[in-house]
Design a protein around this nucleic acid. Structure first.
Lengths: 154, 154
DNA sequence: CTGCCTGCAAACTCTTTGCACGAAT
DNA sequence: ATTCGTGCAAAGAGTTTGCAGGCAG
């Protein structure tokens, strides 16, 4: 999705909810979409400020829920206290497994289509209907174990 | 597992690591094992204080890692900022899925024997070896949707 | 113009830590 | 007698919120 397309999608989302299009919100959007990896709110603040130095931490935190709500970003929680975000690829499977390498702290994401069946099966036993599901795996790097060097670090 | 058995297991674990058996640690253990549902550190503090009012918040936080490390408690992270704990049933499958009802916030746990294979498959693609894995499902209550009353609430 | 949005800073929640005293071994 | 463990209170990390002024619609 081009930046221009994303901007338009964002503006439509804002307008549809009676929210205003501000330079800060656009800067945060642009900064978020430019990220290559998972990023934190703090990292997003730094990048957004590079685009528009009037962006404050509060506005980043106030804008993130709008961005996740408009399906432009996905929130990724790996249970470490701080939340991570990343651009939501259009058409990507909602069933994603996160593999967190305990050696390098990197987060990998892999489509996990089988998960849907499993979540549904498990939920049905409780008379519940699944909304979201997530397989989170902590793993060690084989290369690091064998050669002492983690190929993902640096 | 009886309370007496758990106490002995805990004392053995402490002794084996050169840690001391204190009344506070035992009170926290007893309070934890008496819980029927998932509990937070704060709730555990309240219950432990009912058994021994000299227990402080700091000691609860310092003891929780010892209890999880000795396999007497399991930590359950559902991505809400605070961590939950529950007694670790002896012999239970290490592969557990958590289903969190978004209507009543209750946490259900279900054995998920296939998860290990999923995690291994997904990790192998990255040349990683899984250490822990977790399937977390958010779900809505069917009963609430149909009748307007959540049978789990209250 | 109206009122949503903003930056700032303080508040908040959960957890961790420095310190001097007290208790387990 | 040694240490390790403890309570207290302060510090920390991440996030949220009250307020007065600013800008979008």
């Amino acid at each position: 999705m081009s930046t221009e397309t994303a901007r338009n999608q964002f503006k439509t989302h804002l307008a549809g909810r009676g929210l205003r299009v501000t330079s800060q919100r656009l800067a945060i959007l642009d900064a978020a979409l430019a990220q290559q990896e998972h990023f934190t709110a703090e990292e997003l603040l730094a990048h957004a400020r590079a685009l528009d130095d009037s962006v404050s931490r509060a506005t980043v935190y106030r804008t993130l829920p709008i961005l996740t709500g408009s399906a432009l970003l996905r929130e990724v929680d790996i249970g470490t206290g701080e939340k991570f975000y990343r651009p939501a690829e259009a058409g990507a499977s909602p069933q994603i497994a996160q593999v967190v390498c305990v050696d390098c702290d990197r987060i990998f994401e892999i489509s996990a289509p089988f998960m849907e069946w499993y979540g549904s099966t498990v939920s049905a036993k409780l008379n519940l209907t699944p909304v979201t599901q997530r397989l989170q795996v902590s793993a060690r790097c084989n290369r690091l174990r064998d050669t002492g060097a983690c190929p993902h670090r640096n």
